[in-house]
Amino acid sequence: MSLLGGGIFKGMAVTLRNFVGSYFDKERLTTKEYAWRTDDKLPERAGDYPKEEAEQLSDTTTVTHYSRNFPMLLHDEGEPMDTVRCVACQICERECPPQCIYIEKSKDKMERGGNKAQFYPATFDIDVSVCMSCQICVEVCPFDAIVMNSQFELSTPDRFGGLLLRRDDLLKSNDYYHKIHPEEAAARDKRIADEKAAKEAKKKAAEEAKKKAAEAKAKAEAEAKAKEEAESAEKPAEAPAPTHTDAKKEDNGE
């Protein structure tokens, strides 16, 4: 025999506990009070920040350093366009599921960060009204040039122009990236450094091998010469030609 209306009373006890608990136990709260900006100022219209202020505000407009929303273009230290990592290879444009990236390759090449001269994006637009924040562009980029931003105050009164992020809006420094996604950026930088080191080591090894080969060749030549001299034979020494196979990238078959 259960109490008449016992289930209802039990439920009411639960809600009463929650009612009281919400005042004392912060864990219980579903919502948190929205914090005003420290300077007590609300943006009038999100698109209306002056550029410097927007850069400054970007610290407060990111949500958490885990979140992602729209892509941005990374550049290393220095002038954005001088150090932009993007080489306008257009892989992201092709792979983008909703087709929101638009790239125009530059006519000329530009040297960046000690690398050999490459193309750069003359136009790089992302239409964030179409972008669905899937991060596939980040994954397919072979140059680590595109990563996800987490700025959320993007509202604008201009439907077509305002939601179209141009190249200059998208350019963000690596420091900024470190600021918004510390863990991810550190991991990425480490990977780049590792890859670079590996490449360097490989290059070094290759150079050494070359050197060795050259030495061996010289030695062999010297020996051969000596031999030649000794035996007066008419045989030139042959250095082994390095076999260079260029693994062609598999065609996508489109």
Partner: peptide
């Protein structure tokens, strides 16, 4: 709303792992 409070905690985990709360991909 009680359910959403708990859901929120799990969505936070999703966000930390994948970067997004709902569209995890």
């Amino acid at each position: 709303l009680y359910a959403f409070r708990e859901r929120e905690k799990i969505l936070d985990l999703f966000e930390q792992a994948s970067g997004a709360r709902m569209m995890c991909n």
